[in-house]
Design a protein around this nucleic acid. Structure first.
Length: 588
RNA sequence: GGGGGCGUAGCUCAGCCGGUAGAGCAGCGGCCUUUUAAGCCGUAGGUCGCAGGUUCGAUCCCUGCCGCCCUCACCA
């Protein structure tokens, strides 16, 4: 950096601030294949100067239309020394590339706006690529992020990426005489708008031969390594924005998630379900067994919980006669994190009046048939954790107690003594665990791993199904099923309890249980009287369903961890001072 | 919370038995008019996660802490 001393001619102080792609330029520009920028914004063109009149771009001199001559800048050589930017103490400056900062200063010094409000935005890259073979030689504009720039003599190549794809940009001195001396102010990872001529290279790669380059946004940080992308899992999650542009497969996964959610909606919409939104801030939490997050409303001076499930509100809507409702929304559970658990996750819940759990089972199969058709393209096969699964319905069905008996011969689920023996044989914790819970622990320890599925496990014992109706033929069990795939619980459904007296009793038992167990923070401390009141007005028999959208997305995208389908998974906060490495981490 | 692993340049990674650190990419200065993980020559870049300890000497050994990953537990 010591040799950059030669003084380049810069614009005199009184010169116009910058070149403007104004009307005079525009009127003489060749017809664009693409629609130009939004209405004559003051986006600036690189290094336009008087001698561009000699520039031939596709036989036309449209750059030459620029007048008056804007300030000229010559890379870093002409830029004054500008003190390094000062960031506030909390800003992590580690990743800022000094050379990029200097280029930014050079651009500013030359009157160029490194962050213009608008530039010619052009058209989606995939469209341009599709039309290219039949429109060779025509002009097109694209906008996006530059990949690595490859210098080759008086040529430069780089790929430009937008949300639809990637196209190669070719920079030729002959077509870009004005831009050429300043080409190094533009570098990989910068955001640009490029207008050029459609063509190919000698090897036939579709290429946009640039005739005009406009910086749309300067990148002050280097892109991750081109070949490996961003690998470090922690950085991928903390800096998802980098992960997304550096790793195409990540972008693809989240596009797929979007499509999955869209198709889930489409499926329920097509059946006449109403999509609704119910409270996330709830004075009493319920509808599942989980520890809640607590919060507080200041104006009302009221303690609130973030919902652990929308269930009780959705069933109020069934009472209200909406009959078919669903909600796709975030729920919050104050529990551990793992590859399958994020403290906030997205749940689908649906309720349908005049339906029972058999009907709901059919809905689930219908949903999967729809997703197979729309997401997997008709083939229901999906690879997940080294195995292949066939998601094409119908699915296997198996009774809970039958599965239990198969894996635990001679053990009676309802007999505590025999379950206790079995649990001890399996090495499970048994102290202070209630009989029903213990029996279910035995089930989970012996059966769940075998549920590669997809399989509906149905008719769960009453004791572990507090919100479901009993089966008439066998009152020990309920009209409830869960859907398992890859040993993972994907969905839970039952014929909803609509007896207000029974419901009131079950709530009271819960509260009593909580009072007896001071460590029980999963149970609300009071009965949801309003919900019982709703049931007292009469709720039709109804089938309800809950599906973990994140896990569904894991399955359909083949993701190992829930964090690969959640854009911004919860991570422990890194102290800014510690991250900056100044050793001033405050004491806890 | 328990167990295991990891943390080195902006990124991807080496670093042996303890002797104050290397490569590739990105960057910077050059050469090259059809490159595409371009190539070649040159150059710059580091609080080795943080803090202690052992040692003449610590990226390396020990302890504690921070963060992430895997796993178990809780849960969907």
């Amino acid at each position: 950096m010591s040799t950059r001393r030669n003084r380049a001619s810069r614009a005199p102080p009184g010169a116009p601030k910058a070149s403007v792609r104004g009307t005079d330029c525009r009127t003489r520009a060749p017809p664009r294949a693409a629609r130009g920028s939004a209405g004559g914004g003051p986006s600036r063109t690189f290094g336009v100067e008087q001698d561009t009149r000699q520039t031939r771009a596709n036989g036309q001199d449209f750059l030459g239309a620029m007048a008056p001559a804007p300030p000229r800048f010559r890379g870093l050589s002409g830029a004054p020394r500008i003190p390094r930017l000062q960031f506030s103490g909390s800003h992590v400056t580690d990743g800022i590339a000094k050379d990029r900062l200097e280029k930014l200063h050079a651009l500013r010094a030359a009157g160029q706006d490194p962050f213009p409000a608008r530039v010619p935005r052009g058209r989606p890259v995939d469209q341009v690529l599709a039309e290219l073979p039949t429109r060779m030689g025509e002009t097109a504009t694209v906008a996006g992020r530059l990949g690595q720039v490859r210098d080759f003599g008086k040529l430069r190549f780089a790929h430009l990426q937008d949300r639809t794809g990637t196209i190669q940009i070719g920079f030729q001195r002959e077509r870009l005489a004005a831009f050429w001396p300043d080409r190094k102010l533009l570098e990989g990872n910068d955001l640009v708008s490029v207008t050029g001529e459609l063509g190919t290279t000698q090897k036939g790669e579709p290429t946009l031969w640039a005739t005009e380059v406009v910086l749309a946004g300067k990148a002050l940080r280097h892109a991750p390594e081109k070949w490996h992308g961003l690998q470090d899992t922690e950085q991928r999650y903390r800096m998802r924005y980098v992960d997304l542009f550096a790793n195409p497969e990540v972008r693809a996964s989240f596009s797929k998630r979007s499509a999955i959610v869209r198709e889930v909606r489409a499926y329920f919409d097509s059946l006449g379900y109403l999509e609704v939104e119910t409270p996330i801030l709830q004075p009493i939490f319920g509808g599942a067994s989980a520890r809640p997050f607590r919060t507080h409303h200041n104006a009302l001076d009221m303690g609130l919980f973030l919902r652990i499930a929308p269930e009780l509100y959705l069933k109020r809507l069934i009472v209200g006669g909406m009959e078919r409702v669903y909600e796709i929304g975030r729920v919050f559970r104050n529990e551990g994190v793992s590859t399958r658990h994020n403290p906030e996750f997205t749940m689908l819940e649906s309720y349908e009046a005049w339906a029972d759990y058999r009907d709901v089972m059919a809905r689930v199969e219908g949903l999967f048939a729809h997703l197979v058709a729309k997401i997997l393209g008709g083939d229901g096969k999906v690879r997940f954790r080294e195995r292949e699964y066939d998601l094409m319905p119908p699915f296997q069905k198996a009774r809970y107690l039958d599965l239990f008996a198969q894996q635990n011969p001679g053990v009676d689920w309802f007999d505590h003594a025999s379950c206790l023996r079995r649990a001890k044989d399996l090495g499970l914790a048994t102290d202070g665990i209630e009989p029903a819970k213990l029996a279910n622990d035995v089930f989970e320890a012996t059966v769940e791993d075998t549920l590669q599925g997809p399989v509906f496990v149905h008719d769960y014992p009453v004791a572990i199904s507090p919100l479901a109706k009993r089966l008439v033929e066998d009152p020990r069990v309920t009209e409830r099923f869960e859907l398992f795939v890859a040993g993972m619980e994907l969905g839970n459904a039952f014929s909803e309890l609509n007896d207000p007296i029974d419901q009131q009793q079950r709530f009271e038992e819960q509260v009593a249980h909580k009072l007896a167990n001071e460590h029980d923070d999963e149970t609300p401390g009071e009965v949801d009287v309003d919900y019982v009141t709703a049931l007292e007005f009469g709720m039709p028999p109804a089938g309800g369903l809950g599906i973990g959208i994140d896990r569904l997305c894991m399955l359909l995208t083949g993701s190992q961890s829930i964090r690969d389908v959640v854009l911004f998974p919860l991570l422990r906060r890194v102290d800014p001072a510690a991250a900056a490495g100044d050793g001033s981490t405050p004491a806890p």
